[in-house]
């Protein structure tokens, strides 16, 4: 199997999948070329991501990357989420094959967009 056990676990059992009603922040990222897309929703309490949900369309790694991103983002300060990099997501999946690196890029990009949206809505400085 070319994918890690962690990746397969997140693909088979995605954490926090589905729509969030009235989120405090939402952001999407699409990978041009393959059309893979992730969308992250944030519920913010006391400046932290109290609840994170995701939606994703694409290959198995993209779904797994969005799932692991939702897990890692929960409980962290929104300002920190702006800086979550694709490398962190890839590491959390115990690696990605070279031709599937876009999965981490898409998930990290969606999280960053959601965090920026939450900060915008709060009206606070970035």
């Amino acid at each position: 199997m070319r994918y890690s056990a962690t990746l397969l676990d997140h693909f088979l059992h995605p954490r926090h999948a589905g729509l969030m009603r009235e989120p405090d922040g939402v952001g999407s990222e699409e990978f041009e070329g393959c059309g893979d897309l992730a969308r992250i929703f944030l519920r913010v309490r006391d400046g932290r991501a109290d609840e994170v949900r995701f939606q994703a369309y694409g290959c198995g790694p993209t779904i797994a990357a969005a799932s692991v991103t939702s897990e890692r983002a929960t409980g962290r300060r929104v300002e920190d989420l702006v800086n979550v990099k694709a490398e962190e997501i890839e590491a959390a999946l115990d690696g990605l094959p070279e031709d599937r690196r876009h999965a981490a890029t898409v998930a990290a990009g969606a999280l960053r967009a959601a965090a920026l949206d939450a900060l915008d809505r709060r009206g606070g400085a970035r």
Binding site: P14, A17, G18, L19, S28, G35, L37, R39, F54, Q55, A56, Y57, I63, A66
Partner: peptide, 10 residues
């Protein structure tokens, strides 16, 4: 399951 995780309009 895959459809449930899909963003609308994609």
């Amino acid at each position: 399951k895959l459809r449930a995780a899909r963003p609308a309009g994609v």
